[in-house]
Amino acid sequence: MTEGQIHNWFDKQKENLSDELLTKLRKTDPYVFEHMMIELMTRMGYKGADGEAFVTQKSNDGGIDGILNQDALGLRKIYVQVKRYAEDNTVGRQTISQFHGDLDLQGAGSGVFITTSAFTRSAEEAGKKFNIRLIDGEALTKLMIEYKVGVQVQHTFELLEIDNDFFDKRDN
């Protein structure tokens, strides 16, 4: 098997894992899903060294599902909204506009919106205009795999090659 074939095999495994992960996320309890997304953001480093991260209450949360304080005093905050939607239930412009309004009420200039589905073109345009980072299902699973949230290492393989520098030093 060539190195290229090995890379292709690993890419296919990662793609299959991504699909399985997305299916599992769509079946997860919405409140548990919120906790998972705050865990992901924390592992990505958005909580900050001395900050805290938490999920807001289940109801009357003002459109904010999670908050990450990036510093001990909570002066720099990231507001997060998550939607655990089916594949065919895309997030539209109105939902992003509503989240922008919720952010405005918090005095926030930006936020993160995470979904297990996708965003419409108009939602993507609104996200850019309102400084809201949109993470769809495909990007979400890639991040979860990269930061090892909801997944674990099954095996580790090493691909070794000849160290020519080692031999060249000996030949001189």
Rank of each mutant, 00 (worst) to 15 (best):
R133V: 14
K24C: 09
S117K: 13
T116E: 06
D19L: 07
N8A: 15
L105P: 00
D11R: 15
K14P: 02
M36N: 13
G74E: 07
N172C: 01
G48M: 01
D171K: 13
L143D: 06
I114A: 02
A123T: 07
K83G: 14
D19S: 11
M36C: 04
E34C: 09
I67M: 06
K14Y: 11
H155Q: 09
T90Q: 13
P30H: 14
Q98H: 04
Y85E: 08
A86G: 14
R76H: 04
L160V: 11
K142C: 04
L68A: 06
S122H: 10
D171E: 13
D163S: 06
G111E: 11
S18W: 09
M41D: 00
G48R: 00
L68F: 08
N60H: 14
G45W: 12
Q57Y: 07
L105H: 04
F157A: 15
K129I: 02
T156A: 10
I132F: 06
V55L: 06
F54T: 01
K12Q: 10
I114S: 06
I114L: 02
F119A: 04
V112P: 02
N131A: 14
F157Q: 10
Q98T: 13
H35M: 11
E52P: 00
E124W: 00
K128E: 12
I6D: 02
V149C: 05
W9C: 06
G74M: 00
G111P: 03
G107T: 06
E87T: 13
Y85P: 01
L143P: 03
T2R: 10
N8E: 15
Q94V: 13
D19F: 03
N89S: 12
S59A: 08
L143R: 10
R84L: 00
E87W: 11
K47W: 02
R170T: 09
T28P: 01
F166D: 02
E34A: 14
L21R: 06
I6Q: 10
N131K: 13
W9T: 06
L17V: 07
G101Q: 12
S59C: 00
Q94F: 07
R121G: 08
K129W: 04
I162E: 14
F54Q: 08
F33W: 14
L40Q: 06
I162K: 15
D88Q: 11
R43M: 13
L25G: 03
V32R: 11
A72Q: 08
G150F: 03
M36G: 12
I38P: 00
A49Q: 08
Y46S: 05
Q57C: 09
D104L: 09
L159H: 05
F99I: 07
L73W: 01
I6H: 05
K12S: 10
F119Q: 04
L105E: 14
T115R: 03
E125R: 09
K24I: 08
Q94N: 12
Q94A: 15
L140C: 14
K47H: 01
T23V: 06
H100T: 13
A53V: 05
V55D: 01
K148Y: 00
W9G: 03
A123N: 13
E15M: 05
E34P: 05
M41C: 11
L143G: 01
L73S: 15
T42L: 08
A139T: 12
L105W: 02
P30S: 07
A118D: 13
G48W: 01
R121E: 15
L25K: 08
T115W: 01
P30A: 09
